[in-house]
C-alpha cells in the first residue's frame, strides 16, 4: 500500500504547522518590511513632491520678483534718464544764463573801459594837440593860441543875431557868466575876453573862470541855462567815431575768425 493514512494525517498536520510557522516567521515579517519600505518610499515621494511644489512656488516667486525688479529697474532708468535730461537742460540753461550775464557784464565792462579809454584818449590827444599847436603857432608866428582863441571866440559871439545876444544878456544878468577853458587863461587874455564880452552882455555881468578837465581845447561860456562853446569837440567827436569804427571792424574780424574756428 503506497498510502499510509497515519502518515497522511501526520503530513497534513505538518503542512498546517508549516503554514503557521512560515506565516509567523516569513510572510508576516517580510510583508511588513515591504509595507514599511513602501510607506517610507511613498512618504519620501510625497515629501519630494511637496518640496518640488515648494521649489516650484519659490521659483515662480523668484521669477515674479525678478520681473518686478526688472520693471522697477527699467522704470528707474527711465526716471533717472529723464531727471538727468532735465538736470542737463537746467545746467545748460543756467550755463547759458551765466554766460549771457558774463557776456553782458564783459560788454558793459568793455564799453565802460572804452568810454574811459576814449575820454582819456580825448584828453591826452587834446592836451598834446594843444601843446603842439600852441608851440607850433608860437614858434612859427609868435602868436599865442589862447589869445587867438579868445579873440576868435569874442568875434563869433559878436556875430550872433540880436535875439540870441538878447537872450544871452538876460541870462548873464540873472545868473552871471562862467567861462570854462581847458587851460588857465592868463590875465591879458581874460582882459581882452572881458573887453569883448562886456559890451555885448552888459557892464554888470559878473564873469568867473574855471578849468574844465574834460575839455581838450577851447572856451565855453555858460550863461544860466545857455552854453556857448568854441573848441575842438566836433573834431574829437569825429575822431572818436572813427576809432569806434576801427574797433568795431577789429571786433567783427575777431568774431568772424572765432566763428570760422
Amino acid at each position: 500500500m503506497l498510502i499510509d493514512w497515519f502518515t497522511v494525517a501526520a503530513q497534513t498536520v505538518n503542512f498546517l504547522l508549516l503554514i503557521w510557522l512560515l506565516k509567523r516567521f516569513l510572510y508576516g515579517p517580510i510583508l511588513q518590511a515591504m509595507e514599511r519600505r513602501e510607506a517610507r518610499i511613498e512618504g519620501r515621494l510625497q515629501e519630494a513632491r511637496q518640496e518640488h511644489e515648494v521649489a516650484r512656488e519659490e521659483a515662480a516667486e523668484y521669477q515674479r520678483l525678478n520681473r518686478e525688479l526688472e520693471e522697477t529697474r527699467t522704470e528707474s532708468l527711465h526716471q533717472v534718464a529723464e531727471e538727468a535730461g532735465q538736470h542737463r537742460q537746467q545746467l545748460i540753461d543756467q550755463g547759458r544764463a551765466e554766460a549771457s550775464a558774463l557776456t553782458e557784464a564783459w560788454k558793459a565792462a568793455v564799453c565802460r573801459d572804452r568810454q574811459l579809454f576814449m575820454a582819456d584818449l580825448k584828453k591826452r590827444i587834446g592836451s598834446e594837440v594843444l601843446q603842439i599847436a600852441r608851440k607850433a603857432l608860437n614858434d612859427l608866428t609868435g602868436c599865442d593860441l589862447a589869445t587867438l582863441l579868445a579873440e576868435r571866440f569874442v568875434a563869433r559871439f559878436a556875430a550872433l543875431d540880436q535875439e540870441q545876444q538878447s537872450s544871452c544878456r538876460t541870462a548873464a544878468e540873472t545868473s552871471g557868466v562862467l567861462v570854462r577853458s581847458a587851460v588857465t587863461l592868463e590875465d591879458p587874455i581874460r582882459s581882452r575876453l572881458e573887453a569883448g564880452l562886456q559890451p555885448l552882455l552888459g557892464p554888470d555881468a559878473a564873469i568867473s573862470y574855471c578849468i574844465a578837465d574834460d575839455m581838450p581845447l577851447g572856451i565855453e561860456l555858460i550863461l544860466g541855462g545857455l552854453k556857448l562853446s568854441w573848441g575842438v569837440d566836433s573834431y574829437f567827436a569825429e575822431l572818436e567815431r572813427q576809432i569806434d569804427l576801427q574797433l568795431e571792424e577789429v571786433d567783427g574780424t575777431g568774431e568772424g575768425g572765432r566763428r570760422s574756428l
Binding site: 508549516l18 510557522l21 512560515l22 516569513l26 517580510i30 518590511a33 519600505r37 517610507r40
Partner: peptide, 15 residues
C-alpha cells in the same frame, strides 16, 4: 525553512 526564515527576518531592514 523555519530557522532559515527566522534568521533572515530577524534582521530585516526597511531602509
Amino acid at each position: 525553512l523555519t530557522v532559515g526564515s527566522a534568521l533572515v527576518t530577524r534582521r530585516l531592514r526597511d531602509d
